[in-house]
Nucleic acid binder design. Sequence first.
DNA 1: CGCGTTGGATAGTAAAAATATCCAACCGGG
DNA 2: CCCGGTTGGATATTTTTACTATCCAACGCG
Lengths: 210, 210
Amino acid sequence: MRISQLSAASGVPIPTIKYYLREGLLPQGEQTSATRAEYGEAHLRRLRLIRALLEVGRLPVASIGKIVAVVEDEEMPVHEMLGTAHYALASPGESRPDDEEHHAARERVDTLIDELEWHVHPEAPTREELAQILVRIDQLGMPASDESMRHYAGLMMRLVSEHEMGKIPFDGPRETAVESLVIGTVLYGKAFDVLRRLAQESESARILGR
Amino acid sequence: MRISQLSAASGVPIPTIKYYLREGLLPQGEQTSATRAEYGEAHLRRLRLIRALLEVGRLPVASIGKIVAVVEDEEMPVHEMLGTAHYALASPGESRPDDEEHHAARERVDTLIDELEWHVHPEAPTREELAQILVRIDQLGMPASDESMRHYAGLMMRLVSEHEMGKIPFDGPRETAVESLVIGTVLYGKAFDVLRRLAQESESARILGR
DNA sequence: CGCGTTGGATAGTAAAAATATCCAACCGGG
DNA sequence: CCCGGTTGGATATTTTTACTATCCAACGCG
């Protein structure tokens, strides 16, 4: 498959494909001569993943680049690869200075994770991310109790362990494992979000009586 | 409160506040003279909401503008206002032409909503949004069964009805109702997302045995 | 009365994600 | 064997979004 065919098959314009090649999101095709390269199914697949992460997940190109980089680094053990990829999916948030409020929120997060006996890296950026959200919610005057948080966390754990993680082929090829993880996190994550909004609309309609 | 104090209290630079004023995200202060205006608690509160929606929710300024606009439009009945605001929270996605695959996915979504007997507007953009996500998931080869979708939907409905909607003061002032809805949708939505990612990390660690 | 702040208008910037333009090398059909 | 069209590669330009910066005349407070 040449670049024009790859473009036609994926719906992505050629200049954009070239851009992804430059940025390392898409591996180079197999050079057959100085001005010709051959692309395969894997490229098409990767291209679809990129577009899904960009358009559905709204991930920055740089984050996708990080994910791709760990797949390509054969040195890295699988569990580390999955961890790094996972962290790349975090909201690219701004780091906050350590004010009082934030520190307290971080404490709550750490306590929550401890109580649930979850195995989360002590330095996981996800902890900070949650702390920052809790601060915002507090500032807006709709605080979530620790009890609610535990409840929500329990629901999420059920969702994840009963329905998501089983599908990830941890022992397959590196690329496949990461792909499953990323799709599970980003696309299923979005799907849940939309389902939740649909449920909200339905409940709202019910309460307002229509 | 003058603009400089509003800026100091919120941490938002004066030029940015002026920008939000121009864009209609923030209502004008009360003019006390040609070159002086007074801002109150409501402005500070609104400013915090704006920043939370921008930084945590990653909503485009234009969407926040739409939400603000419906609050300000006193003509609009409350239920319609909430609906409009809710739709403004949808991912600002591109509209897809009607290919075969998308049509089938949309059918699945409509059937799902019917079966669950949810009260969702037939033209709700959320339906399209979910359909597009399903298409992507299919294309990437990790399709979700109708059964799974029903299960996920049930979980979300429980979450929403048991814990979220009760907190919205449908009979309070317009502004407060919208604020609660938006905070519930966007900020709690993000919180769930992060909790889910934390659960994923924990499960992944457990499975990989560390 | 004068100096700093304000509101309002206009212009400019930064970052992210493409797109566009060029060019020489090449391939394959005639 | 030659020539129109495609390719890879490099470089430049555009678009969008969310800000920032600059000006300016009018205040208003000490």
